[in-house]
């Protein structure tokens, strides 16, 4: 039965349902049980933000705490995936990719191709990204474009509880390595989520809102920012169509192009730093494939090319907000040659 639950609960439910369904699904990460070897509860934390809470006792032996050794345990998840398991490893913050990236992009991503199509590596790496929690430069980045760049990896960036559950179940059932990027500011966001298990196929964008004036492609947390902007713009007579790609690899180029062919105007909203991010990628796509439909230059709303600042005064300026999105939409809507 559909009910309103949080993004965190949706992820937990997806893990629980898949662990229930398939004994090869295991969960591992720092403090994923939380309390291994301590004098208190063995499942004290359930992950640093409580996402895996409750799974430890429900699935004995299948929720593994790890030392703070990202290379070793992310690599172990990958190795186990080549031997019949479907591990879900939690890389606490996406920023920590720096201490285990080799295992992800040189190992997991390459196996299938490098071994002549004879390997499959059904591993999921869940990781928390994004700014907004005053977590500063090493715990706030939106690094999904880096993973998106790597052939062999799939990248999901769920924008809502519904997306989180369906995309995570798809990630676990998928036979390729998936980087599953959870925005830390969305964990308490709520939405309607069916109780049944379900999947959302990769490479299928969701049209969050129909509109004929301007297409806004927004990723992850930026979807709700775009919705806020769209609401305000609607009252001033500009109807925005919001496209949420849901996965950045594969990318549903067809839905983006279809929308731009209808509106003739595009704004891409991406929380990542501005060079070689999804905004530039999608802009290039549209410039190449839908040039004839464009009636205004493409606008990009992104973070600035800086590390994520700590002070709230600065971080609030760093993160794209509804006002900036609205301004960008207006500028393309009103653009005259």
């Amino acid at each position: 039965m559909a009910r309103t639950i949080s993004y965190r609960e949706a992820i937990n439910e997806a893990l629980a349902q898949e662990m229930e369904r398939d004994g090869s699904v295991i969960v591992m990460g720092e403090d994923n049980a939380g309390g291994a070897g301590g004098s208190g509860a063995e499942d004290a934390w359930g992950g640093v933000l409580g996402v895996t809470k409750g799974l430890y006792h429900r699935f004995p032996g299948r929720v593994l705490d790890t030392p703070i050794s990202e290379s070793a345990f992310v690599g172990a998840a990958i190795g186990a995936a080549t031997r019949g398991m479907r591990p879900v490893a939690e890389l606490m913050f996406i920023d920590f990719m720096g201490v285990c990236f080799d295992q992800i992009f040189n190992q997991a991503a390459k196996f299938r191709y490098m071994f002549g199509g004879k390997a499959q590596t059904p591993v999921v790496i869940r990781t928390m990204y994004g700014a907004g929690l005053r977590a500063a430069a090493q715990h706030s980045q939106a690094l999904y474009p880096i993973f998106t760049h790597i052939p062999g990896l799939k990248v999901a960036v769920p924008s809502s509880p519904y997306e989180a559950k369906g995309l995570l179940i798809q990630s676990i059932r998928d036979n390729d390595p998936v980087i599953f990027c959870e925005h830390k500011a969305l964990y308490d966001a709520t939405g309607d989520v069916p109780e049944d298990s379900y999947t959302i196929p990769f490479g299928e964008a969701n049209v969050v809102r129909d509109g004929d004036d301007v297409t806004v492609v927004a990723i992850g947390r930026m979807v709700s920012v775009a919705e806020e902007a769209a609401k305000a713009l609607s009252s001033s007579g500009i109807e925005v169509e919001i496209v949420d790609p849901r996965t950045t690899s594969p990318l549903d180029t067809e839905t983006i192009l279809e929308s731009v062919e209808n509106t003739g105007r595009l704004v891409v909203v991406d929380e990542a730093s501005p060079r070689c991010n999804l905004a530039t990628d999608i802009s290039a796509l549209v410039a190449r494939e839908a040039f004839g439909s464009l009636r205004a230059p493409v606008e990009m709303v992104t973070a600035p090319h800086t590390p994520v600042p700590f002070s709230d005064a600065l971080e609030d300026l760093y993160i794209p907000d509804a006002q900036r999105v609205a301004n960008a939409v207006k500028s393309v809507a009103e653009w005259k040659r």
Binding site: A72, G75, A76
Partner: peptide, 19 residues
């Protein structure tokens, strides 16, 4: 990759243990 293999083997060993 020099040092690429040991983490993977932790994984294959883990799989064998789990299975």
């Amino acid at each position: 990759i020099v040092g690429g293999g040991p983490p993977l083997i932790c994984g294959t060993a883990l799989a064998a243990k789990q299975q």
